[in-house]
Amino acid sequence: MSRALYTAAPPRTVWESINPLRMIGELSETRYWMYLLLLPSALLITAVVLYPTLYGFQMSFREMRLNRPDVGTDWVFFKHYIRMVNDPIFWLSLRNTAIWVTSSIALEFLIGLTAALALNRNLPGTKLLAVLILLPYFLPNVVAGHMWGLMLDPRLGVINDLLMRVGLLDGYKAWFADPKTAMAAAIIVESWHSFPFFTLLIMAGLKGIPADLYKAADIDGAGPLAQLRLITLPMLKTIIAAAVILRVIGLVNSPDLLLILTSGGPGRSTQVLSLYAFQMAYKDFNFGYAGALSVVMFVLLMGFAWIYVRLSKVNED
């Protein structure tokens, strides 16, 4: 009976039934086409993101030392996490991460907002200036780090020379060798590198604010600062919230710039959590402990994101 049904379909030549182009064309008319389009990328993301992350979670409960095969890879349950609680370097890194993230974001936001407001006036020449101002964001960490390393060099650095010429410094200063200034110097380099991200997003947000609002405020006699506080910033709230959270993720997760500038030194004055975890894996080959450190980092980040989104939603109501 089923045979009779098949023969009822229009006859096909052999070539037509195996022609790949035709087959894909027919496939694209099925109900599952949208899922098929997603399949390759979903598989890839599963393989390179989800699987490694889960692997990382279970790794944090095991002994895993690449340079010590003799200790094996047994389950050690919460050993690494207990070690962490008693590890002063962990607590120091956590504190440094908080300083690193909040100071960088505050600085990046302030510069980014100022730049966006200035660029948004659309004065002649703005297009060229915008390209120059946005450029640092696209430069590699490695080069950004070395450019500033050269400029902040204790003996050959141009910044020391300039600061001495204008009388702000008495003698050449070793910015990255002094625990008191190393973090501040790194934050300045990071802010130089990433403030254009805020500029980009805020500029996009500014374009969406209706000009009528400002005209009305003008008539009511509100000055530019009042307009900024009462119109611009409230209208930009969502975008600023999104930008801040993306930057927090970026700053917490990537130790690149600090790895290049200071490697966490001098002492441990610029040791942040991501850097500690990376060095634990890359230098000490203690994958279990490194995994536990990154799991804690991940959980803290997720917790932060959750609270932050909740808070910014509450404020909207």
Binding site: L38, S41, A42, I45, V48, V49, L50, Y51, P52, T53, Y55, G56, M59, I249, V252, N253, S254, P255, S274, A277, F278, A281, F287, A290, G291, L293, S294, V295, M297, F298, L301, M302, A305
Partner: peptide, 24 residues
């Protein structure tokens, strides 16, 4: 949900993925 998933995976720490990626 899927679109959100594609967004959330960006939150995963690089360090957490790098070590397993190295092993795999």
């Amino acid at each position: 949900q899927l679109m959100l998933g594609y967004l959330v995976v960006r939150m995963f720490p690089a360090v957490l993925m790098i070590i397993p990626l190295f092993i795999v």
